[in-house]
Design a protein around this nucleic acid. Structure first.
Length: 414
RNA sequence: GCGGGUGUAGCUCAAUUGGUUAGAGCGCCGGAUUGUGAUUCCGGAGGUUGCGGGUUCAAGUCCCGUCACUCGCCCCA
C-alpha cells in the first residue's frame, strides 16, 4: 500500500464514482432548468468577511470550520463553506438587483474543517438553487418543489422525508426570543453546557439540542407558532397550502432550526434515514435579510443546498459509461488507416477507442474490457478490398462492411 | 472537538492460546490460440501485515504513540 494518502476528508472521484456524481449534479441542474433557473458559478474563495458577516458569528461553521488563510497580497480569504453567501455577494457586485427576480442554480465544491465521517467530507460538493427578489410564499413553494423534483428524478424521494418549520419574521422572533429565554432560565441548573452557551448567544438553537434531558425541558417549552405575528402565520399557511396543492408531503417540526443565521420564515430539511447520522440530503429556507446584511439593497431570497456525495449514495445503480467502438488494426499499414478512420468517426461524434499495442488477441481482450459495443477489424486482406470486419461484441456476430459505409453500419452505436 | 470500532496482496477476506516459509477467491500478467474478446485449462507476478516505538526466545496477533477509515456525539449538505 502506498504511503501517499489524500488529505484527510478529501477523496478522488474515479470513473465509477464520477459517473454517480455527474448523474446527481446533472439531474439537479436539469430539474432546476425545468423551473426556469439558470446555472451560475461564483468563486471558490471569497474575502473572509463575506462568510463571517452572513453566517452568524456564533455558528460552528464560522467559529471553527472555515479554511481561512492570508494570501500573498495580505488579504484574508476563505474557501467557501457554502454557496448562498457567494451568490448574494455576486448579486451585489454585479448590480443584479436591477434584474429581479433572479433564478439561479449552482454546483461546486465546498470546504469545511470537520471530523470526516461517512457523508461528511472536508471537501464536498453541493448543488443548490437560489430564488432572489421574490417575497411571496409561492417562491418558497417553488424552491421546495425543485428540490423534490430533483430527488424524485434520482430515485430517492420516496425514501426521504420533508420537514418544515417557520422561523417567522423579525417581530415574531423578537417576541418568542423573550418568552423562550425566560422559560429556559427557569431550568438553568438542569440544562447541558452547550445549551447554556446557546441560551446566551442564540437561544433558538437550544430547541435543537440532542441532549436527552434538554429535550425533556424543550418539550414543554412555549411553541414558536403561538408567538408568530399574524403576517408570519399567514405566510407559513400559504407555503403549506402551496405544498398541499402540489401533493408534496411534509411533516411540521417546530424544533427544526437552521444552523446558519440568515434564515427567516420558511426553513426545511429533507432527510433520508438510511444514510445514518449524516442523513440530511437537502436543506434550506428563506433568507430575506441576507443581501441587506451584506450591504446590498434589501432583497428577498429563498434557496436550498444539497450534498452531492450524499445524494450519490442514494443512487440505486452506477450509471453505465457510454460504450465505445474499438478499432483493431493488424499491421503497420492498418495502424495508419485506423488513426485516420478513428478521426473520421470521432468527427461524427462516435466514441472511438484505439489501443496502442498488442496483437489481435490482446486488442480484442481490451475491447471487451472497456465494454466496447463493437470492434472494427482492419487487416491487410480487408484493406486491400476497401473493407473492414465489424464484430458485435455482445452477440459475437461478425460481418464485412465497406469502409465508406462504416458510419451507416455503426449508426446504431453512436 | 469528544467517545467506541477497524486497518493483512489492486479488491473481498483467512491465518489455534503470541510459534517457524502470512493463505484463498476475484482481479492482473503470460501461455494453450503470432487474424478474434467475453467462457475453459495451465502457469506467474504481487506483502516492510497502515506507519513508528515497546514487551518477548518469538509479534499480523499483546502494549503505547501516530495516521487513515468507520460508528455515535457535535455540526451540517
Amino acid at each position: 500500500m502506498s504511503g501517499l494518502q489524500p488529505v484527510r476528508g478529501t477523496h478522488d472521484l474515479l470513473p465509477d464514482d464520477m459517473r454517480r456524481f455527474r448523474r446527481v449534479a446533472d439531474t439537479c441542474g436539469r430539474a432546476a432548468l425545468c423551473f426556469g433557473y439558470q446555472e451560475v458559478a461564483t468563486p471558490i474563495f471569497e474575502f473572509t468577511e463575506v462568510f463571517k458577516r452572513t453566517l452568524g458569528d456564533t455558528s460552528d461553521v464560522v467559529t471553527k470550520e472555515m479554511y481561512t488563510f492570508t494570501d500573498k497580497g495580505g488579504e484574508t480569504v476563505t474557501l467557501r463553506p457554502e454557496g448562498t453567501a457567494g451568490v448574494a455577494r455576486a448579486l451585489i457586485s454585479g448590480g443584479l438587483s436591477q434584474h429581479l427576480p433572479l433564478k439561479y442554480f449552482y454546483v461546486g465544491p465546498m470546504f469545511r474543517y470537520e471530523r470526516p465521517q461517512k457523508g461528511r467530507l472536508r471537501q464536498f460538493h453541493q448543488t443548490g438553487v437560489e430564488l432572489l427578489g421574490v417575497k411571496e410564499p409561492a417562491g418558497d413553494v417553488e424552491v421546495i418543489a425543485i428540490g423534490v423534483e430533483f430527488l424524485r428524478r434520482i430515485g430517492a424521494w420516496d425514501r426521504c422525508e420533508l420537514e418544515l418549520n417557520t422561523l417567522g419574521d423579525a417581530a415574531s422572533r423578537q417576541a418568542y426570543r423573550q418568552v423562550l429565554i425566560s422559560y429556559l432560565n427557569g431550568f438553568r441548573d438542569q440544562l447541558s453546557k452547550e445549551s447554556l452557551e446557546r441560551l446566551e448567544k442564540n437561544p433558538l438553537r437550544v430547541l435543537d439540542s440532542k441532549d436527552e434531558n434538554d429535550q425533556k425541558i424543550v418539550a414543554n417549552a412555549p411553541i414558536y407558532t403561538d408567538y408568530l405575528t399574524p403576517e408570519a402565520t399567514a405566510f407559513f399557511a400559504e407555503v403549506k397550502a402551496g405544498l398541499d396543492a402540489l401533493g408534496i408531503a411534509y411533516r411540521i417540526n417546530p424544533r427544526l432550526v437552521r444552523g446558519l443565521d440568515y434564515y427567516c420564515h420558511t426553513c426545511f430539511e429533507i432527510t433520508c434515514p438510511e444514510l445514518g447520522a449524516q442523513k440530511t440530503v437537502l436543506a434550506g429556507g428563506r433568507y430575506d435579510g441576507l443581501v441587506g446584511l451584506m450591504g446590498g439593497p434589501e432583497t428577498a431570497g429563498v434557496g436550498w443546498a444539497s450534498g452531492v456525495e450524499r445524494c450519490a449514495m442514494l443512487l440505486a445503480e452506477t450509471p453505465r459509461a457510454p460504450r465505445p467502438i474499438a478499432i483493431v488494426p493488424l499491421g503497420e499499414a492498418a495502424e495508419h488507416t485506423a488513426t485516420i478512420l478513428a478521426g473520421r468517426l470521432r468527427r461524427q461524434d462516435f466514441i472511438v477507442d484505439l489501443g496502442f499495442s498488442g496483437n489481435m488477441g490482446k486488442r480484442m481482450k481490451r475491447a471487451n474490457k472497456i465494454d466496447a459495443v463493437a470492434a472494427v477489424i482492419l487487416g491487410d486482406d480487408e484493406l486491400a478490398r476497401g473493407e473492414a470486419g465489424l464484430k458485435l461484441l455482445d452477440s459475437g456476430e461478425q460481418k464485412t462492411v465497406r469502409l465508406d459505409e462504416l458510419e451507416a453500419a455503426l449508426a446504431a452505436y453512436r
